[in-house]
Design a protein around this nucleic acid. Structure first.
Lengths: 334, 334
DNA sequence: CTGAAAGCGCTAACAG
DNA sequence: CTGTTAGCGCTTTCAG
């Protein structure tokens, strides 16, 4: 920078970095500041990083998270938190291509990022690309390596959903809607949570209505169910899109929500507020998860100091809206 | 890097950068490459940038784009294209706070980004923060400065929507649903496009149904309209969420889509495929816009060479689905 | 065909 | 209280 202020670079560096114990006279300080402003001086981050080995940058690499509806919140949480701590986020997407992913990790490492967050939308166990970086955390996924992982407490979420129904007085005719596979963590855990909470209340699932986690598939499956058997009293849909399909099927069958059948769901996406009646849904705490991920990668979370390589479960709170009511006392309508 | 390969740094630099005219013997080259791999050598990007003044990084600063549903596609398009050209994207969000925005721009500039993309979700004319950077482009917004701007061709989109209806034979009973204000570009242009196309076919809008661009508001407005007058033959909804509300109102009124009333909309969000029947919608070309933005900021788009400071309109194609049919010949049902 | 050396802009000992 | 100076790791001219 210009020593147009008539001082040395050291002085400039000191005042600009507000170095503590190095007393600079107030007048010098002011002069430097003024000159810097006048000439629009901007310290070169590359040079600084080269010297300090710190980039104030964290890399977030995901499979395809940005694409997804709710996934955006993961990034927003990370973004906002990074900003709060004066860091910038480099976001990259591997499109699920391991080759691309390896390349991206290389690139981030070459850029000396201070930390790496590995995120997926599938919430799966993943194959780690050859990362060896002090500060790496997994977001919404796990691996065989001993790395911190931030996950939604799907088990607790499952309990929340069941409890919402139980609180309203439901004990019978409760169905779970959506495919459950053991390999898909959210499905498996939500299911377990539901059965556990139900069981503790002396109730149980009356059945499962299997379908893909999409409106159309859910519509078909629920319609079929409705036409072949006695109508359910309550539906626990494994996500809001499934609930959307269920709403359509219920409407077509002339059943009313929540009078004839109560519905509770997972994700608390925008859809939940758009449906009529508005859908009670167990929220996916994506924003918080993103926040916690950068806090942990930055090493400024108390909890993490104690148990670094552990799974950190983030609560899934239920958002009560209008889709649950007390069960009808009489027989369910056809 | 280690001259463990027994060569000088120059040589290493030359082979790693595949420098053209500087003949390195094949065996030296191979040795360097092998050693580099063995020791997991990674050139330090900060050092390189310091020397070359190039960071291969582009900054994308937005108001709150990541949040939005479709907004994600803007980023995905930019991300994918940047990656293709070996660049990384630093994404930041200002949360609409001008103070934050200024700070972010400063930071990006300090990091010597090769280019800056300024995006908004509102598609508004914006106040530029004090950017003075050779390569800046506006994404989904305009300003008073002479900067390239990438925008959706909302006017053309409006025509597309009207034409879809006209093709099916509609001439009468066509209503526009959603508030139109002159300051909101998408609303204004879509409206203009609709009236223009309709006018050219000798038809015209029978009326406007004003409401906020959300399902609930649209539901109320359309319901009111249905109860007070003769039912419309066709609805042009200003976005998919409005269409969603309209669907609900139509269903409650016992009207069938598309038999009784046809519906066409804008945005082509996921909702469009989830509705029953699936919604014909004019797509927002966000992915392409993102792509074009980085191509232009990287200076590798032919078109841009000619007219640098101009608005670049990206077409909005109509996605035909099942919500449009020929109008009933008789009188519309109550 | 390969090496020596300068310097990108900054920070941080160490002198003064 | 302030200035000199030596690098951070890389690219690139210029000699060998």
């Amino acid at each position: 920078m210009a020593e147009r202020a008539g001082v040395s670079v050291t002085t400039v560096s000191f005042v600009l970095n507000e170095r503590p114990g190095s007393g600079i006279s107030v007048e010098t300080r002011d002069r430097v500041l003024r000159v810097a402003r006048e000439m629009g001086y901007r310290p070169n981050a590359a040079a600084r990083s080269l010297r300090t080995q710190v980039t104030n940058t964290i890399g977030l690499i995901s499979d395809q998270i940005v694409t997804d509806n709710y996934g955006g919140d993961l990034i927003r949480g990370a973004l906002a938190t990074a900003l709060q701590h004066d860091h910038l986020l480099i976001v990259v997407e591997s499109q699920d291509d391991p080759e691309v992913e390896r390349h991206l990790v290389e690139d981030l490492l070459a850029r000396q990022v201070d930390g790496i967050i590995l995120a997926t939308i599938t919430s799966d166990r993943i194959q780690l690309p050859g990362i060896r970086h002090g500060r790496t955390v997994l977001l919404n996924c796990t691996s065989s390596h001993a790395l911190p992982a931030i996950l939604a407490d799907e088990l607790g979420g499952g309990r929340e959903a069941a409890n919402a129904l139980l609180r309203a007085g439901h004990r019978h005719g409760i169905f779970l809607v959506g495919e459950v596979t053991d390999t898909l963590r959210p499905a498996r855990e939500r299911h377990r949570g539901v059965t556990a909470a139900l069981g503790e209340a002396g109730a149980e699932l009356e059945g499962m209505i299997g379908c893909r986690w999409w409106p159309e598939s859910a519509y078909d499956a629920v319609s079929t169910q409705l036409s072949s058997r006695e109508a359910p009293r309550a539906l626990i849909c494994l996500n809001d899109r499934v609930a959307f399909g269920a709403y359509q099927a219920l409407a077509d069958a002339g059943l009313r929500i929540p009078d004839d059948v109560s519905v509770v769901s997972f994700d608390d996406s925008e859809l939940a507020r758009w449906l009529r009646p508005q859908l009670t849904s167990v929220a996916l705490p994506y924003f918080d998860m993103g926040r916690i991920a950068v806090e942990s990668v930055l090493g400024l979370s108390q909890e993490w100091a104690h148990a670094p390589d552990q799974e950190h479960l983030v609560a899934m709170p239920v958002r009560e809206r209008g889709s649950i009511a007390a069960p009808r006392s009489g027989a369910a309508p056809a």
